[in-house]
């Protein structure tokens, strides 16, 4: 279980994340949703501590995250971040094996056990056949699944994911998220796609300008009355197989952001 209370992050004078509460239940998937610039990714980074918090606290299974050494934290929390090709690529296999590093001292090299766990994680993520390929040469979907395999190899019990469906086509979006939903781990995932959040998240937290607007079961949060003022777009909700799905239609009389800027300049 991950509990974050009154998280606050400032970038200079801008408050990017403003007293945000996030409670991810053990074994569940919590979705962080909200428009661009609402503070989803910053919230995720503040939970992990990769951006400094200006307020608030985070507990992982009841222990304050600040009391954990970086290695102890890495043994409990894995991350699937956005990784850009670096031009200095590892093979998929070596990239997944790195997930074992928080459990090894600098003097130890990978053992048989680490190899078995890495192979099993890749098998589970469906990328074992890509083991020898360079990560930079993989397609977006393949690379994302390699990152998930690394997080699995970390055996952390908690996984933070930053838009894992970015750049993926529809099939891979569902493949990746159903893989995530089936994991025996507590997951916090940043998602842009509200319909994916509706289908795969047990809880969602809706952010707007760094503040929580709504939080709870997707069926309760993902309703037009809550979402329309935040996203400034008209939507209709239909329930498909008991899962809420949203259909969007641009506001006919509303000005687009670009049109507004052009007008203001005049």
């Amino acid at each position: 279980m991950i509990v974050a209370e009154r998280l606050t992050v400032r970038y200079g004078r801008t408050v990017a994340v403003d007293a945000v509460d996030v409670v991810a239940p053990t074994g569940g998937v919590l979705g962080l949703i909200g428009p661009n610039g609402s503070g989803k990714t910053t919230t995720l980074k503040a939970i992990l501590g990769s951006v400094p918090r200006d307020g608030g606290r985070v507990e992982i299974d009841g222990e304050p995250v600040d009391a954990l050494s970086p290695t102890a934290r890495a043994q409990r929390v894995a991350v699937v971040a956005q990784e850009e090709p670096s031009g200095l690529p590892l093979t998929a296999w070596d990239s997944v094996l790195l997930g074992r590093s928080p459990r090894l001292s600098a003097w130890r090299s990978y053992g048989e056990n680490d190899h078995e766990i890495a192979a099993a994680s890749m098998e589970r993520a469906g990328v074992l056949h890509l083991a020898h390929r360079s990560v930079d040469d993989l397609s977006g979907g393949e690379r994302q699944r390699v990152l998930i395999a690394r997080a699995l190899a970390q055996e952390a019990g908690h996984i933070l994911m930053d838009e894992p469906t970015n750049h993926l086509d529809v099939r891979y979006q569902h493949e990746v998220l159903s893989l995530v939903a089936g994991l025996p781990a507590t997951v916090i995932v940043v998602l842009h796609d509200l319909n994916l959040a509706a289908r795969y998240c047990d809880e969602v937290v809706l952010l707007e300008r760094g503040k929580v607007v709504a939080a709870g079961h997707p069926g309760d949060v993902l309703v037009p009355e809550v979402l329309e003022p935040v996203y400034e777009i008209d939507m209709r909700r239909v329930d498909v197989d008991g899962v809420p799905q949203l259909i969007f239609s641009p506001r006919r009389h509303a000005k687009t952001a670009t049109a507004q800027v052009v007008e203001e300049r005049r």
Binding site: L98, G99, L160
Partner: peptide, 23 residues
């Protein structure tokens, strides 16, 4: 050579290095 795994992680990205227990 003792830092080699950290170098691997840092070559991937700061977020990854941090997630794998490095500063």
């Amino acid at each position: 050579v003792l830092w080699s795994r950290r170098l691997d992680a840092l070559a991937i990205g700061d977020d990854t290095a941090h997630a794998l227990g490095a500063n």
